[in-house]
Amino acid sequence: MATITGGAAAATPVPRPAAHPPSNRRRRETRAALVFLAPAALGFLVFFAWPTLRGLYLSLTDYDLLTAPEFSGLDNYRTLIHDDVFWNSLWVTLEYVVINIGVQTVVALALAVLMHRLTQSTVIRGVLLLPYLISNVVVALVWYWMADFNLGLINQGMDWIGLDRIGFFGDENWAIPTIALVNVWRHMGYTALLIFAGLQAINRDVYEAAAVDGANERRIFFGITLPLLRPVLALVLIITVIGSWQIFDTVAVTTKGGPVDATRTVQVYIYDQAFTRFNFGYASAISVALFLILAFVAFAQLRLMRAGESDQS
């Protein structure tokens, strides 16, 4: 330290090393780095790295959480390949992701553009954000009630305009779309805000130029806004898709996987096996499978996003 105060004093900020013996400073800097890194490294090792390895190991065991795990080789994976419920759960989850992400992105984009063109009101943005602040559990309960077959507001409304009632959560074909849309409701405002921010970042000269050229709204949207928004959209998709794959809360408080297996998503199935059927080892094997799928999805998306970035320049 003394070297600093004494030495190169008043110098204008020079590239860092010069002022004192490099090795000494390096050592101090490394030591400081270790101290700063220590807690996060501990968290990383204990709650990310170790469980990842352990999860792989547990997937090779027969384990009920009550007695010690027994190594069983690839048994769990052999069962997994022939487990129709597992394959069905993958399919159900995919259906959920497609509906959820598809609708959510379109709606949020529409909302963001509407807000951008119409108003800067914080109140409106605030209201749209409200559902995001409420927990999944509350949101699920509220919609479970509103979509109730007999007493729910929605079916009452459909009755009133002369449509047949729908068992939103009770009908095999409706359950997943219903749950997907419920979560669209929770996330649309949040996603719209992310996109809205992207819109604000677009240089307004571009719009002015387009206006001078006499372009109409539609051409502006497809010709200018959408292409410039691609990187933001890609980021939004990365954030939302991975989360969407892990749909659990809404199902857990409403249908619990039923009717039949219509809403038994992968994570719900993992939970069932691990914590209510005493098949913890098997559940670990399913989660390894989910891990691989998500890794693939993330990888594909990263490539997609890189494509988006190059687009911008």
Binding site: F149, N150, G167, D171, W174, P259
Partner: peptide, 18 residues
């Protein structure tokens, strides 16, 4: 049908005249 009665209680349905 199952979709109609899922989650409903018989006693409620009798009370409602269903």
């Amino acid at each position: 049908a199952f979709a109609v009665q899922d989650g409903q209680q018989s006693a409620d349905q009798m009370a409602a005249g269903n």
